[in-house]
Each structure stands twice: as structure tokens, then as C-alpha cells.
Design a binder for these strands. Structure first.
Lengths: 222, 222
DNA sequence: ACCTGAACACCGTTCAAGT
DNA sequence: ACCTGAACACCGTTCAAGT
């Protein structure tokens, strides 16, 4: 009792920014982006919706904090090796985090002012410099990698949104693949030829191939 | 009177999918993404919100239709020249459309199942093939370009959202540039060095440089 | 066939009132 | 200082009722 009075933050049911953000991540993972509401979050924390506003300014800040929490291990992880290897490690770390928490992809591509994004940008840029890219081309090169990562992230978030509730991933890909194969040959000659690849492709491997492709272009800037 | 009875669709105030989509584009351009509500749209069309549902299934479909309407000239424009030139023309067309209608960027990156996106993908892929990329690498190469375009689109939409109501573009960029210059040198050495570039950089030129960089990487796949 | 607008089931956010 | 929960000002969407 005395202990509780002196350390109220130790009470298991005490609200804190940390607990709120943790519960938000859980809710987002379990129910998707539309599952995070202040009412659902408050119920989960056994309190009223207004209580959350004492610790968090608004929903945008909450989403940013949830994203930062999930991305923290990725942005702080030490990576060693060639610049190419480090960039691959950092970007695939973001990819994997988005795979595990698809809402992060939507959040990153919709709100790139996030501190987590700046940290990713910094790490990519530092390695671009190590690659020997002249100063005047570094900003463009680092931005290209970042935009690619954010683009893939948005795509994966959208896919996860589509998948939630309906069919599973491979059924869905098979259905889209069939759609592509059925497109008008005059209007979509290319898309038809890659319909088969879509069905069986490994998202993660293709992501890394994309990163390598951009890195090959960056190296040519030397 | 008789004419009206026989051709009611000619009445200027008659609702139609076309008029609804046009009004939606206007509202999105004028008031931003949050400005498009069924109530505001109905008021603009001098009707009730329910009337819109006779012509459009829901808000997602309306947003997709608005995006398609804005992107139609881009996806159907004829472009001639080398494969690189055509890819540059198509992608910068998307970039310009997003610049003029920032909500399109958010829509594309959040919902890449859009028919407009497939058409962009097709045009990029066809030129990738023309570049002499072997079949097994074409899907990855075309996807990389598309993801970069979508990533930039999302970023531009977010920037436009931030800019709406607050300061103008150059003031905002100057403020962010100053923030970057003030970052901890130990944590953000790279970002600090590009702070100056951010203030004066030409978004469109940087976008095209990014496309060229990826194209340089794609050419190396031959 | 097409339109009307009230009504339903939600939201994020605020704020007086409590402890 | 922190929590409560009713209330406010909205949403997208539905649907009986009209023409």
C-alpha cells in the first residue's frame, strides 16, 4: 500500500504513455488499421477514452509513437559489412517490420515526417557516402532508396488491408494472377507476361532485388 | 418540356456519375482530402447525400474514379523516343498529376490495385522489355520503378497535407532545412550535410534524377 | 428509375466533474 | 496530477418515402 502510494507508476493498471502505445500496437496488429479507435483502446485499458488524451495529444501522435516503437529495433540495430550490405540490412529490416505490422507501411508512406523515417534516411545516406558517391548526388541517391522502401511499404499495407477477412495470401495472388493473364493482349501485353511470376514470387526476395538494382544505379554515379 | 422528359440526362442539374466525379475532384483540389465528404459533395450538387449512392457504390469507389479521371490523360498519352525517354515521360506525367492534385499521390500509394496503377505498370514494363532486360528480371525492374513513383507520390501528398493552411512551401522547406542543420552531429551526420540542398532543391528534377538512377541500374541487368 | 433527407452506427476530441 | 464518461461535432452509409 505504502509502496503503491510512493510509486503509483508501478501499479499494473496505471496508465502510461508506454502502456497506451503498447496496447495500440496490439490492437493494430490484431484488428488492423480500422481496429484502433480511442473507444476500443480505452476498453482494452479499462478506462475511458478521455484518459488517453492525458498521455497522448491525438491519434496522429499515437500512430507515430506506435510506428516508432515497432521500428526502434530496426533503426538502432548495428549493421556491419560493405555499404551495400548495410543498406540491404537496414532496408530489409524495415521491410520485415512492415511484413509483421502492415499498418506501419501505411503510416510511413502517408506520414514521412516521422522521426523513424529520418533515422532510416540517415543510415542510407551515410552508406551512400561510403559508396563514394559525389556530394552533389548523395541526396538524390539516398532519397531514391528511401522512396522505393516507402513505396513498397505502402503497397504491402494495402495488400494486408485487402487480405484481412477475405481469402489468404496465396489464393489472392492466384486470383490476381488469373486476372492479369486474362487482360486484353493489345492493352496489357507486358502485364500478361508477368502474370505467372506474380503468383509464385517471393516478395522479400523481389524487394532485395529492387534494392540491389537501385544500388547498381547509385554505384554508377561515382 | 417534352425534350426534357425524353432526355432527362440533358438537364444541367441532373446527377450523373460523371458530374459527381467532377465535383469530387473539385472538392479534393479546393479543400484537400478531408474536404471530400458526402454531405459537402451533396450540397455542392444541390441534392442529398443518399442520391450519390445511386451512382457510386461508396467513398472508395468515388476516390478511385476521381483518381482515374485525373490520371486518364497521363496513362493514355502517346510517348515516343528511347525506352528511357518514354519511361521518363510516363513517370513524370504521374509526378505532375500528383503535383497538381496531391490527393492522387495518397490515393495511389494507399490503394495500388487501382486500374490507373496497372496501366502505369504496363507502360513501364513494356519499355523495360524494350531496354533488353531478360524476361526473368523484368517484373522486378518494372516494380522498382513503380514503387519509386508511388513512394514519391505518397511523400508529396503528405507534404501538401502539411502545407495546407500553414506556411507556404519555401518557408516550410526552409524550416525543415534549419531543423536538419541543427540535428545532433553524432546521430545525423549525413542528414546535416544535405540540409542546405533540401531548401533549394527542385522536386521535379530530383524525381527525374531518381528515375534515371533506377534506369541506370536496370540497364545493367542486360 | 432516380432522388430526398432523416436516421443509424459509428468516429475523434473536449471538458466539467470527480479522486 | 490524473482519470472518468457524457456530450459535441462530425463521419459514411442505409432506407423508407417520395416523384
Amino acid at each position: 500500500m505504502t509502496t503503491r502510494a510512493r510509486h503509483p507508476e508501478r501499479r499494473e493498471d496505471a496508465l502510461s504513455r508506454e502502456r497506451i502505445v503498447g496496447a495500440a500496437v496490439e490492437l493494430l496488429d490484431d484488428k488492423g488499421e480500422s481496429g484502433l479507435t480511442f473507444r476500443a483502446l480505452a476498453a482494452h485499458l479499462e478506462t475511458g477514452p478521455g484518459a488517453i488524451y492525458w498521455h497522448v495529444a491525438n491519434k496522429n501522435e499515437l500512430l507515430a509513437a506506435a510506428t516508432a516503437a515497432v521500428l526502434a529495433p530496426v533503426t538502432s540495430a548495428e549493421a556491419t559489412g560493405t555499404p551495400q550490405e548495410v543498406i540491404r540490412a537496414v532496408t530489409v529490416g524495415v521491410f520485415d517490420a512492415i511484413e509483421a505490422h502492415p499498418w506501419v507501411g501505411a503510416q510511413l508512406s502517408a506520414n514521412p515526417t516521422q522521426p523513424a523515417v529520418l533515422r532510416i534516411f540517415e543510415r542510407i545516406g551515410w552508406q551512400v557516402r561510403a559508396l563514394g558517391v559525389p556530394p552533389s548526388a548523395r541526396f538524390t541517391a539516398a532519397s531514391a532508396v528511401l522512396h522505393f522502401v516507402l513505396g513498397v511499404g505502402g503497397q504491402n499495407a494495402a495488400l494486408a488491408r485487402t487480405l484481412r477477412g477475405t481469402t489468404n495470401r496465396s489464393d489472392h495472388l492466384a486470383a490476381v494472377s488469373a486476372e492479369w493473364a486474362d487482360l486484353d493482349p493489345d492493352e496489357f501485353p507486358f502485364t500478361r507476361t508477368v502474370a505467372d511470376e506474380l503468383r509464385d514470387h517471393d516478395d522479400r526476395a523481389q524487394f532485395l532485388d529492387g534494392v540491389d538494382l537501385i544500388l547498381a544505379g547509385i554505384v554508377r554515379l561515382r
